[in-house]
Design a protein around this nucleic acid. Sequence first.
DNA 1: ATTCTAATTAAGAATGATTACGATTTACAA
DNA 2: TTGTAAATCGTAATCATTCTTAATTAGAAT
Lengths: 136, 136
Amino acid sequence: MNIEKAWDILKNKGFKKTDKREQILSIFSETEKYITAKDILNVMKKEHPGMSYDTIYRNLSTFVDLGILEETELTGEKHFRMQCEADHHHHHFICMSCGNIKEIPFCPMEVLQNAIPGYEIENHKFEIYGNCPSCH
Amino acid sequence: MNIEKAWDILKNKGFKKTDKREQILSIFSETEKYITAKDILNVMKKEHPGMSYDTIYRNLSTFVDLGILEETELTGEKHFRMQCEADHHHHHFICMSCGNIKEIPFCPMEVLQNAIPGYEIENHKFEIYGNCPSCH
DNA sequence: ATTCTAATTAAGAATGATTACGATTTACAA
DNA sequence: TTGTAAATCGTAATCATTCTTAATTAGAAT
């Protein structure tokens, strides 16, 4: 996902182009890491001192709904990052030291499906936490 | 895990036997589901109207530390249940309708370890959400 | 059995993330 | 340019969780 593609989606759904949305998307496009609403506020309040949390949370929620961002819960806080472009479904290793992520080129769900017949799987979470090679 | 075994652990570590702990453990022993601190308060305040949240959270935290309970984050809230007896490491299918859980007799980590060499895995979360056969 | 002491609890205030709301401003279509 | 719904601001409310202090209690020591 990149900024242009995000705007395509937003425009297509009738959302307006605003400075705030532009800047939020720009922040996400510059990092691979999962970041929080507070992280975003800290960057944005430099330029817009009167920045409202409401604006950030509302837009993050919109972006997740539209598939522009992906969301996960880490240590009690919601974290967000740009939705991966990858054509194949995959998961992430998350470095708890530097925050960088690594794509895990495999998903256990295919194997699983057969293991619990009769159970209707709607969602799953598969995340691996630890230290990446550079944070060893 | 059962109540007797939990008390063995608690006694062994020098924790005292109190009515509140007895009742909290009893609530967990009567369900397979993941429940919240509020769920516990709702049950306990019938007998102990002046029940404090602090007592619940403090004990839940102790129980998790001692391996009596296991904890997970569902829809923004901490949920707890008795630690499984199972001799083998495993994961859970969680029914989002009735809350019942089913043991998944397999863990993808063995396969994964080889897929990302150099990455030090400290923890992982593998949970499957959906509807169980009876909630179809 | 009584006393002592550290562990435990009660009661409510504090915190921190997130959401809600009325008033104001803005994007953009007509 | 103007009208209007959408977006934002500023702040208050909410919700789960943690903290604080004083009072109570379990279990050990006497």
